[in-house]
């Protein structure tokens, strides 16, 4: 992944989508599939997710993020370092909770999400490891709702469908698709979890139907990662 500086947080309130609609590409592209969920205990904060594969315009998207285009108030994550739906959901919970209780270390819940995934407090490094890079082809986009202006899933789907050049992946209720591009060895390295355990270097996806032992190892690894994330900054 190419190193980069983290995007600057958006400072002002984003303008209404219609006002800047002129900067949009012609809208023939179909809308992206959006999976909307709410975390238990946060019923008024829907979270919209969109998963893409074969993304070809990551550099363009990144330049939008880096220039703090208020229309791009999203977290664009590299899906190869998302181990499981639980991994993502915990990061989302931690980000939302930090944001809502005024304990966030970054300005928006979206930057907080990237930050919360990372094992240490280096925000730039968090973006380099978990944010979409110029080379990323598998991307998960997260949009927090219920924070000020209403965000409609349809609008998110339409916007992402237009701006992301790639194949939208539909997600099921259990969100297993979040892990379909996971590079377990890479995740293990980021969290410094040492060797051993689930083999298959470079093998993509956490095969949920794999043999029991590998599955248990993956579960154990996930447990440690969740604990590290929950205790970060303590």
């Amino acid at each position: 992944m190419a190193p980069s500086s983290p995007p600057q947080d958006t400072t002002s309130t984003p303008p209404r989508p219609q006002e800047t609609a002129t900067s949009q590409p012609p809208s023939q592209s179909p809308p992206a599939h959006i999976h909307t969920l709410t975390l238990p205990h946060y019923p008024t904060h829907p979270i919209h997710l969109a998963l893409f594969r074969s993304v070809t315009n990551a550099p363009t998207l990144r330049s939008q993020l880096l220039s703090s285009n208020p229309l791009f108030d999203y977290a664009f994550l590299d899906a190869t370092v998302l181990l499981s739906p639980t991994h993502l959901l915990l990061a989302a919970q931690l980000a939302l909770h930090a944001h809502l209780t005024g304990k966030g270390k970054t300005r928006t819940p979206h930057s907080e999400l990237v930050f919360r995934l990372h094992p240490n407090n280096n925000i730039g490094e968090a973006y380099r490891k978990f944010g979409m890079g110029d080379e990323s082809r598998e991307v998960l986009v997260v949009k927090f709702g219920g924070l000020g202006e209403a965000v409609a899933a349809e609008w998110v789907g339409k916007h992402l469908g237009e701006v992301v050049e790639g194949e939208s992946v539909r997600m099921g209720e259990d969100m297993e698709e979040v892990a379909m591009f996971a590079d377990v060895a890479k995740v293990r390295k980021i969290y410094k979890l040492g060797e051993g355990g689930a083999k298959g270097k470079g093998k993509k996806g956490t095969d949920v139907n794999g043999d029991g032992k590998a599955r248990d190892e993956l579960k154990g690894m996930e447990s440690v990662i969740l604990g590290m994330m929950a205790l970060k900054g303590s």
Partner: peptide, 20 residues
């Protein structure tokens, strides 16, 4: 919480820490 995570790391069966 730290002892629980330590146990998980070292393969001792304890509940996972999910949040704090």
């Amino acid at each position: 919480a730290r002892v629980l995570v330590r146990c998980k790391r070292d393969g001792v069966d304890v509940p996972r820490v999910l949040g704090a």
